[in-house]
Design a protein around this nucleic acid. Structure first.
Lengths: 167, 167
DNA sequence: GTCGGTGCAAATGCTTTGCATTGAT
DNA sequence: ATCAATGCAAAGCATTTGCACCGAC
């Protein structure tokens, strides 16, 4: 799955996070009768290292330099598995290509985007979660996760410019 | 632009809405030295008729039956203009293809998606808007719009199924 | 030896673009 | 005549898939 209001642990740095996520992935693969291959491990490592919203091309580039080079097809195939394992999720920023981000062990993250500069600020806000749960409750739904994007102008950018469109 | 917390008018039915939106589009085109052609008018009408989240293929199909047949390329080109005019916006549901929806004269709409069935419920919630504004204020940003997707299980679907991933 | 995994290249499918034609002013 | 709009077909591009080869158990 994708969002988790109560993550099993709250890592503070990538290294600390690495080991548990790998085990989670390993267990997930095992439960499906699949293998934890060096390629899959390397891809997951690259994603954890990057530690931000990413796209496939970026991971490919990042890995090209290192010894652990994998094909684009393998990255795509691994991303599907990582998503099913609940380790990453799609970010849905623009329609041109897919963006993903790490979610395992993370607070759900909301985003604020500057309409002029494209600057992105991520935040976690308890009230968003509460409101989401309340809305679900009123309608009799069972909340799983949410995605909140706020489009705004950041304080630094006060010059006049034609606003762009949120995608 | 795309979201508008205070729309200039609040139409109740598509017909009532039609005329003003057309004028808005006409004025927008004029301001750019572009023409309000029969094709563009027909595409806008089709979108207003449909009155829900749509994709290009659907509009094409819908128009194929009628006398006003246009090419797919023209629809794509018109959609760009309608977006720039602030009449429609991209919906960003899945990464496979683009979805759009009418926003001119509408309350900003939030969405609840059932993770099992894909069922989509749209709603407007004042609290979401207030919360969004409050978050912006705290950070010194100037709110323009937002996008709120809630992923949940709808009450009808209580059978056991592997949860899918929000895209 | 069976099965899954990988890389490569080819295929897919949505979207964009080039171009010749058409239409409005 | 000029300048933009349209339709068609071709091109682009991110993503998926088919297939031959490889490696682990």
């Amino acid at each position: 799955m994708s969002f988790d209001a109560e993550p099993p642990f709250k890592p503070t740095d990538p290294t600390e996070m690495m080991a548990p996520i790998c085990s989670v992935f390993r267990r997930f693969l095992k439960s499906r009768g699949l293998k934890y291959t060096p390629e899959r491990a390397a891809i997951l490592d690259a994603i954890i290292d990057r530690d931000e919203v990413f796209e496939v091309e970026e991971i490919l580039l990042q890995m090209t330099g290192s010894a652990a080079r994998v094909s684009k097809a393998t990255i795509y195939r691994t991303i599907i598995l990582l998503t099913e394992a609940g380790i990453i999720t799609q970010a849905l920023f623009d329609s041109k290509q897919s963006h993903y981000r790490l979610i395992y062990g993370r607070e759900p993250q909301d985003q604020m985007v500057c309409m002029r500069t494209g600057k992105l600020v991520e935040f976690t806000n308890e009230e968003v979660i509460e409101l989401r749960n309340r809305i679900c409750k009123e309608l009799g739904w069972n909340p799983i996760g949410h995605r909140m994007h706020i489009y705004a102008h950041s304080p630094e950018d006060s010059e006049e410019a034609p606003p762009s469109t949120p995608e």
